[in-house]
């Protein structure tokens, strides 16, 4: 349909004019300043007492590789323990039962309220409190034999992680509409089944970004387990520099490995997010 009313003249015809490129002067200046600063730091490292040949040699040393494997094994197992505990504690926290509620709140309070390194040391030295542990009449053992660095680190990191994860999970579960819970009840589901089948899968969508964050934190927190002799990455690096005194070189080696692992984790998180976004992608929120 054409416009029947005549248009007023006297306006510039813009359709023929090209659009000039904007000059982002300030961005260029800022980028140059940052590059200069990086170059200065790089120079300091290059001219400092750093033997780069040691860095490249130890980057793939057997002990270091074992260290990164131990780090990842511990991070994955402790995170798994943390998520299981976190889900259970979050469900307890939201239950109508006051006993369960207070146990859950107490757990979070205790393990969030004390430093992680202290908890690791406590688990490792638990033999001082309980010389023997076991199930009366069935099985018992000396605590010093049971509480290996591996087990102490797993319990310390996992139980501490559970306290944080429970809050992430609780927030995720609260983000699911109450109507979902009622609809699940209306088709005859009990509380736990409704949580497992209906509420938690929807909560996952919300909790994966913070959990990814927590997992990256966990990868780095495993380095604290070096104080209880767990042979993770930092501990391996330390053992080498105690022998050859190449402190900075080995710290750089460890740092590069941590960076690499964390860089790989980010795209993995994206994949998980997509998996749990099923059915939600169409909602513009």
């Amino acid at each position: 349909m054409s416009n029947s009313a005549p248009l007023a003249g006297g306006f510039l015809d813009l359709s023929k004019l090209p659009v000039a490129r904007q000059a982002h002067w300030r961005r260029w200046i800022a980028a140059a300043a940052i590059l200069a600063a990086l170059a200065a730091i790089g120079r300091a490292f290059a001219n400092g007492q750093i033997e780069w040949s040691y860095v490249s040699r130890f980057l793939t040393a057997r002990v270091i590789l074992e260290g990164i494997v131990n780090t990842m094994v511990m991070a994955v197992l402790a995170m798994a323990l943390g998520i299981v505990l976190g889900v259970v504690v979050a469900i307890m926290r939201l239950s109508p039962n006051p006993v369960l509620k207070s146990v859950a709140a107490g757990y979070t309070w205790l393990f969030r309220g004390t430093p992680l390194i202290l908890q690791l040391l406590l688990w490792f030295n638990i033999a001082l409190v309980f010389p023997t542990i076991g199930i009366p009449g069935l099985w018992s053992a000396r605590a010093v034999d049971v509480m290996t660095p591996f087990l102490s680190a797993l319990l310390g990191l996992g139980i501490n992680q559970g306290a944080y994860t429970s809050e992430v999970m609780r927030a995720g579960m609260l983000s699911v509409d109450a109507g979902q819970y009622e609809a699940a009840k209306a088709i005859g589901m009990g509380r736990l089944r409704a949580l497992r089948r209906i509420v938690l899968p929807q909560a996952m969508r919300v909790v994966i970004p913070p959990l990814g964050n927590e997992f990256i934190g966990m990868v780095k927190a495993t380095s604290l387990a070096s104080v209880i002799q767990y042979p993770e990455l930092l501990h391996s690096a330390e053992n080498i520099y105690y022998a050859n005194s190449r402190v900075i070189e080995l710290l750089i080696v460890a740092g590069l490995w941590y960076l690499l692992v964390v860089s790989i984790l980010t795209p993995l998180q994206m994949l998980l997010e997509r998996r749990f976004a099923r059915g939600f992608s169409q909602i513009a929120r």
């Binding site: 109507g179 979902q180 209306a186 589901m189 009990g190 509380r191 209906i198 929807q202 939600f280």
Partner: peptide, 24 residues
């Protein structure tokens, strides 16, 4: 709760806001 869930099977409920499970 289990007995109540069993009794609920005899009734079907349709909500004002549908409450379909969005991930299914």
């Amino acid at each position: 709760e289990r007995q109540i869930a069993r009794q609920r099977l005899k009734t079907g409920m349709v909500f004002q806001r549908f409450n379909l499970f969005p991930h299914k």
